[in-house]
Design a protein around this nucleic acid. Structure first.
Length: 446
RNA sequence: GUGGGUGUAGCUCAGUUGGUUAGAGUGUCGGAUUGUGGUUCCGAAGGUCGUGGGUUCGACCCCCAUUACCCACCCCA
């Protein structure tokens, strides 16, 4: 009934008190991405439906039943992007980047995606992902570069333990038929024991049976032929190189023949970073190589490799593992006005300090001094200064350190430099405290 | 699309075998002698008990329906 005040199913509000967590994750990602030489690519939130049908693959669940598709006023079928790669490829092709930009082309995006699914923990209808794409080289070094980015992001965020890298190779269009044939031969002997869904998979894409979570299918799949045994010479060699380079980089991984991505465009290397804590939706990051995609969408045959990392799931993992940093500190100063003159003075120094670069708060509700102090405390202000007729007249006031209660006198005329010194003393003290104090070299410098 | 669970104040939750003015904690706002926070004390605001039916003298409580959220399947980030 109160539909007006109910957000759409499967969507999330990020409230002011929590938004710093998202900013922290995004900023960390951007910093790592910059180090690895990836530049941001921004594309529209919706694209022509056909782009996803062709790119993601019209046998996938994503295209068949999970897309937010609508007709625009011109009668064109549009779709809210369900993933990032198709749009990225479109933008790269449409802007001729494969011929004008230096190769390999390395791009990233942080964007929201939309899938019409039933929401649960770690799975939402509007979700956010950071994704990267590396176009123009088939070399294993590119696969490993891409995996390294994901690993570096996770490490930088503090997700070192409890997140596992699993890799596999699903081969190329040349070697896949042999594997499919072998799978069909194996599973045909067990048809009666497979679940209903897997009967369908048997025809369309028998590799998906390996991924089935049904107990009985899982048991049967354990004895199935291993895809890695059916790779052609080139693919085998490629996978060997990927493994060697990963090992050389000190990146721990496990080979998991059951890693089969659900998007049709993947070839060769596929990988995921999995955490057990994010509910059943444990895949924090999933990706792989897609050498056929660019050609499939009408571009020149161009190899590519990339991944998508779910921000909601990353955040869940950070919270589960308790590796979120301390929340940001409150304003440097809360300027309290005690009377009419004081309020005027508070407004004045607030304005002045803000333009000097300090975070300063002031009362906007004509509240009592006590109420303003309470507000300052609640906001986590590091200092307060109470201004009234007396201070205005004498030109002298004090900064009160809200943690220690200590008061530092200053002259109103010198408020900017006084604020700077007070803040410096605070960080120097925190620094000494953190490093066990007694760091003479640094504390003498102030 | 399929299962299971849960809906009582902004938040977390009590609410006796159905009994009349529905509670606590927390949060918000205010006060505890003149202009100083965090602890403490006092007070205030805030709920058509998800919604619609039904049973009953009487329903937050029982029954049915509906809806929302959560968890899981499926799928994937």
């Amino acid at each position: 009934m109160a539909n007006l005040l109910t957000k759409p199913r499967g969507t999330l509000d990020t409230l002011p008190a929590d938004s710093w967590k998202w900013q922290y994750v995004e900023n960390t990602m951007r910093a790592v991405l910059a180090r690895f030489g990836f530049a941001e690519l921004r594309t529209p939130t919706f694209e022509a439906t056909e782009l996803f049908a062709r790119g993601v693959g019209d046998t996938t669940d994503i295209v068949n039943k999970e897309m937010y598709t609508f007709l625009d006023k011109g009668g064109r079928s549009m779709t809210l992007r369900p993933e990032g790669t198709a749009g990225a490829v479109r933008a790269v092709l449409e802007n001729g980047l494969l011929s004008s930009a230096p190769l390999p082309l390395k791009a990233y995006y942080i964007e929201s995606c939309f899938r019409y699914e039933k929401a649960q923990k770690g799975r939402y209808r509007e979700f956010h992902q950071m994704g990267i794409e590396c176009f123009g080289t088939h070399e294993a070094a590119a696969d490993v570069e891409v995996i390294s980015v994901a690993a570096a992001v996770l490490r930088e965020l503090g997700l070192v333990k409890g997140v596992e890298l699993r890799i596999n190779s699903i081969g190329c269009p040349k070697c896949r038929p042999a594997f499919h044939a072998a799978l069909r031969e194996y599973f045909s002997a067990h048809m009666d024991d497979l679940c209903g869904l897997c009967h369908g998979r048997f025809e369309k894409n028998p590799m998906r049976i390996l991924d089935c979570k049904e107990e009985k299918c899982h048991t049967i799949a354990a004895g199935a032929p291993i895809g890695l045994d059916y790779l052609c010479g080139d693919c085998r060699e490629h996978f060997e190189q990927v493994k060697a380079l990963l090992a050389g980089d000190g990146l721990a991984f496990t080979i998991d023949p059951h890693v089969v991505r659900g998007l049709d465009y993947y070839t060769n290397t596929v990988f995921e970073f999995v955490s057990a804590v994010v509910g059943t939706q444990g895949t924090i990051c999933g990706g792989g190589r897609y050498d056929g995609l660019v050609g499939m969408l009408g571009g020149p045959e161009t190899p590519g490799v990339g991944f998508g990392m779910g921000l909601e799931r990353t955040l869940l993992a950070l919270e589960e593992f308790n590796v979120l940093p301390a929340p940001p500190k409150g304003p440097a100063l809360y300027a309290v006005g005690a009377d009419e003159d004081g309020r005027r003075a508070a407004r004045q120094i607030t304005r002045q300090l803000r333009s000097a670069g300090f975070a300063v708060e002031q009362d906007l509700s004509a509240r009592s001094v006590k109420a303003q102090m309470k507000a300052a405390n609640r906001l986590g202000a590091q200092f307060t200064t109470v201004l009234g007729g007396a201070e205005v007249e004498s030109g002298k006031a004090v900064f009160k350190n809200m943690e220690t209660g200590a008061e530092v006198p200053y002259a109103l005329a010198d408020v900017e430099s006084a604020m700077g010194e007070a803040m410096f003393a605070l960080t120097a003290a925190a620094f000494d405290n953190y490093f066990g104090g007694g760091n003479a070299a640094l504390s003498e410098e102030g």
